[in-house]
Design a protein around this nucleic acid. Structure first.
Ligand code: FES
Ligand code: FES
Lengths: 145, 145
DNA sequence: CATATTTAAGACAACCAAGTCCGAAATAGC
DNA sequence: GCTATTTCGGACTTGGTTGTCTTAAATATG
């Protein structure tokens, strides 16, 4: 509803990597897609995109897989959203006007904007590592039912 | 990003009808789609759905068109969203978990839910007529650029 | 009644996101 | 060096949303 399927998988995959593959250990595609309940080949493609852009790291060959570089900075949630769904995903008009504009706003602009600004700020400040911590503590999950 | 294209057009069309076709006067498809900048035949289909479900009224033949029944109750925004995009569009998990669930939530649930609850409440209480008033006053617009 | 106008309905087409497949490249272990 | 494993990259297929077209039905007007 908010993010594309690709983006959902990307967020979940990186969160999972943060928990299970920080530093030395690696996870292969099948382990990841099992953990986040996503189609394997589709997940592969998304992981490749993340890797190509340096958000995650990867190593080919036996024993290889995907991981988070130990020296890498914490990953802000917005980085993944910008990469997968495109920048300004939050700056678009809720009613589809060409330009979301204070001067010539659509009727839902005022209320809508006040929420999307809050949400955007959250996603710009929150890191994947913080979400990962919630999972580790058992306060949140990547799969249910 | 939030609503489907169909839903955007539906909302804009009904708002426009509230301003220009309350009671006696009617608007035909071409006038409506011009006012809201939408493809004519596609808009026709959406208007038919709205009419079939009694949200708006229509009359065939020369001088016919679409209008809002004068005796009809104010239209809550959520009614249109439920009809076009399906109910529970706001109750789904932001990360795509099968079930958005307090007991077994995804990592973004807490923050996300607090926004979506606010937004849902807004859409349940706001009426199309209130939005229409903003347009009439020149404080909001259905087209820009 | 004939005609023009307008919505109704459903089949059709185009587009894009979601998902699959396959051959190539890298690498670890023998 | 050979083989098995694993990611990489791109071509391909599928499905759902968006958008079009065509024919039918209703009705106002002369
Ligand atoms: S103009 Fe529509 S949300 Fe800003
Ligand atoms: S479980 Fe993900 S938003 Fe509620």
């Amino acid at each position: 509803m908010m993010f594309s399927k690709s983006c959902e998988y990307a967020l979940k995959a990186v969160i999972h990597l943060c928990i299970k593959a920080k530093g030395e250990s690696r996870l292969n595609i099948s382990e990841i897609s099992r953990a986040i309940d996503s189609p394997e080949p589709f997940t592969a493609k998304i992981l490749q995109t993340l890797s190509r852009h340096g958000i995650i790291s990867s190593i080919k060959g036996p024993g290889g897989g995907f991981y988070i570089d130990k020296k890498a900075a914490p990953i802000r949630v917005i980085e993944i959203i910008d990469l997968i769904d495109g920048k300004h995903a939050f700056d678009r008009c809720g009613l589809g006007l060409k330009d979301c504009n204070e001067d010539r706003p659509c009727p839902i602009h005022k209320e809508f904007k006040s929420y999307s600004v809050q949400l955007k700020h959250l996603l710009e400040t929150k890191t994947i590592q913080e979400f990962a911590k919630e999972i580790s503590r058992g306060n949140a999950f990547l799969i249910n039912t």
